[in-house]
Amino acid sequence: MEVDKGKGEAEETRKVAEADRDTVTLKSSDGKLFEVSKEAAARLSTVLAGMIAGGSIDDNGTDLKQIGSEALENVVDYCNKHANSIPSAALISSSISFNTAPFKEPEEWERKFVDRLSHDALFDLVEAANFLGMERLLDVTCHKISEMMKGKSPDQIREVFNIKNDYTKEELEEIRQELAWAFYDD
């Protein structure tokens, strides 16, 4: 009886300690572990916020089977940088009003953050941000992709992103006939 009580108390203290920890551990699909500030993770990702609130965070590393280590490293890097750079009040209000508020231009550090990524890493990061419900990171990565597309013809977009053209000649001709109007500058 006495022993059991003691064990229960130990369990309790361990749980309290866990709740007090200010980081969470995330595990990528290939088994690598990453530490991220709990406060930043909850603030930037709706999915992680839900997991933290629901107590489904695993102390030994929460499994994120859909995200590779490279993308997760970038996610964690972004969260940690974000935690240091933007006052939280401004950020919370911007994430709540996201659907109605116009897109806010990326900050200088966010620009640098996405500029150093390869195409593959950038696309993987978009997928990870989408999976984790990180609206701001989606905004920033998609803004980068839109800059890469801006003013480009379909041919040039295929070249930049290495996409195979699966239209037949006839189909493209059919579309072109419908596009009777054209811009002077194109």
């Binding site: 839109s146 597309m149 801006k150 480009k152 013809s153 379909p154 977009i157 295929r158 996409i163 195979k164 053209n165 699966d166 239209y167 493209l172 579309i175």
Partner: peptide, 11 residues
């Protein structure tokens, strides 16, 4: 930008 994307591929 989306107008050009429509002609990139079928998906």
């Amino acid at each position: 930008a989306l107008a050009a994307c429509r002609l990139v591929c079928k998906s």
